[in-house]
């Protein structure tokens, strides 16, 4: 494992910490898209189907369990916690799941590395992760007064995939035959979706003003 991969995973982990911190400290999930959170949970469930059948390392297994556990915990907070669930922006969070899930499922059926249930479901998770942030980005654009933790959360999510791209470049040059077109292209698409957000995030940080996305 290289430093970019480790940094990417740690940033990803930190994004969960920031999100849980925001929700718990403010007892509010205002500005957080439940749809994006549900899609991420679906992504992890589909990607880690081999959790118990394919052991790579203690690190991998632990991280997978943490990601799954945290995702379900966030869903519980947003849907089941009696104080927090009333703060959810239901009327604003209107993105349709099917617009993302259906094309990703079709694409996974068409473009994959192997025609096995595990592989197709895994590929679906890669495609879905690339676009799962869209409901959150749409909600951010509609939210006035984005709080710092929400902005930081989305920034960390984007940074994580950016660091993974550096990790793939590193692996390409250091590992023989390391080619993963599906993952690379999806990861690049995923990172590109954040570029607009990055621009406004960094601008607000440099000018020391509150983050606001133009609608």
């Amino acid at each position: 494992m290289n430093i970019f991969r480790l940094a990417g995973d740690m940033v990803h982990l930190l994004s969960f910490v920031v999100l849980v911190l925001k929700i718990n400290a403010t007892k509010s999930c205002r500005g957080i898209s439940l749809k994006t959170q549900e899609l991420y949970t679906l992504v992890f469930v589909c990607r880690y189907l081999d959790l118990f059948s394919n052991f790579i390392s203690m690190y991998n297994t632990t991280m997978k369990i943490v990601f799954l556990g945290t995702s379900f915990a966030i869903l519980y907070l947003m849907r089941g916690h009696k104080v927090i669930k009333v703060t959810y922006d239901r009327e604003q969070d209107t993105f349709r799941y099917l617009f993302l899930v259906l094309p990703c499922a079709l694409l996974a059926l068409l473009i994959h590395n192997a025609w096995t249930p595990f592989e197709v479901v895994w590929t679906f998770s890669i495609y879905l992760e690339a676009v799962a942030i869209l409901p959150q980005l749409v909600l951010l654009q509609r939210t006035q007064n984005i709080d710092n933790l929400t902005g930081n959360y989305v920034f960390l999510l984007g940074l994580y995939r950016g660091l993974y791209i550096l990790n793939w470049i590193y692996r390409y040059f250091t590992e023989p035959h390391y080619i993963q077109w599906i993952v690379w292209i999806s990861g690049i698409v995923q990172t590109i979706l954040y570029l607009d957000f990055f621009y406004y995030y960094i601008k607000s940080w440099k000018n020391n003003v509150k983050l606001a996305l133009p609608s």
Partner: peptide
């Protein structure tokens, strides 16, 4: 097995 099918990333 090739590294393509190992899925060693998260």
């Amino acid at each position: 097995a090739t590294s393509q099918h190992e899925h060693d990333e998260l």
